[in-house]
């Protein structure tokens, strides 16, 4: 029967080494695939369009502000806050301060807070 000649073991060792090298290569490739994934995810996750849209909605409210009764103002604010929470899973609140003279125009400071669990956004804008 076979005598235990182990001279050939190094061939198997070479095979193992190549296999190991391949695994490392695969690891690197997987990492780079992850980079592309996070780029797209970053774009998807950062709610740029949502925040921009929310600001416009709030500005629309302040366009109408003067002609609304107190109750209607409260309703409108509730529209934005409650629908944001329910449909966009975002905590939104905003309030305004007294009107100020900003380079000749009467503007009110509007503070906006937005938080959707991942991204937090705070801003005070004169409108």
């Amino acid at each position: 029967m076979a005598c235990m000649n182990e001279d050939g073991q190094w061939i198997v060792l070479m095979g193992l080494l190549t296999a190991l090298a391949l695994f490392f290569l695969a690891l690197i490739i997987n990492q780079s695939a992850l980079v592309g994934q996070t780029t797209a995810e970053g774009v998807l996750e950062f709610p740029k369009n949502d925040i921009r849209d929310l600001r416009l909605a709030i500005f629309d409210y302040y366009d109408d502000y003067g002609e609304l009764t107190l109750l209607q103002q409260q309703h409108y604010v509730d529209d934005i806050v409650r629908i944001s929470l329910e449909r966009k899973n975002a905590v939104v609140y905003f309030w305004d301060g007294p009107q100020q003279d900003v380079s000749g125009r009467m503007l009110r400071p509007v503070t906006i807070h937005y938080y959707n669990g991942v991204t937090k956004y705070d801003e005070t804008v004169y409108y």
């Binding site: 290569l25 490739i29 780079s32 592309g36 797209a40």
Partner: peptide
Amino acid sequence: VVSMVPGLLAGLESSGIDYDA
């Protein structure tokens, strides 16, 4: 196996991950 490796890398390059960004 060695001839398979560049194919592996080429697949990475043409996936357009960077290009889309």
